[in-house]
């Protein structure tokens, strides 16, 4: 059983106990085009589910990234400060953006699994 979930705004979250790792989906990375900047959240930042966590910029556009779950930021992927292009190369693995300590594991029920997310994307 996979522990990856997706939001309607195209973030992914990987759940491991009460630790959530967050990034954007391969679909989102492809839609945004070449990523030029990732504004990482500050460790310690508390955020509610679906509120703005951080931001991302591509050659074409600037977008907000929303928290898939509520919690507190534990760590961030600082490699993205100097190599934001990793988001295009490996959006759902190397380009994780932050880890969070989850406050409410039941929120996962509001997210989609991969199969549901693929269906959702087809409807866009």
């Amino acid at each position: 059983m996979s522990n990856m979930y997706y939001t309607k705004e195209h973030e992914w979250v990987k759940i491991d106990g009460n630790i959530a790792t967050v990034g954007i989906s391969d679909y989102a990375a492809h839609q945004l085009g070449d990523i030029t900047f990732v504004e990482l959240p500050k460790p310690g930042k508390a955020v509610k589910q679906f509120e703005v966590l951080c931001a991302i910029e591509s050659v074409k556009a600037a977008s907000d990234i929303y928290a898939p779950v509520s919690g507190t930021v534990l760590s961030v992927n600082e490699t993205l400060n100097t190599r934001p292009e990793i988001v295009n190369e490996s959006p759902e693995e190397s380009a994780w953006m932050a880890t969070m300590k989850m406050t409410d594991p039941s929120e996962v029920a509001k997210l989609m699994n991969r199969e549901q997310y693929d269906e959702y994307r087809k409807g866009l």
């Binding site: 085009g33 070449d34 030029t36 050659v59 074409k60 292009e85 295009n88």
Partner: peptide
Amino acid sequence: PIQYEGGILA
């Protein structure tokens, strides 16, 4: 055409 397969930066 805004870009081709390789992307704008390439």
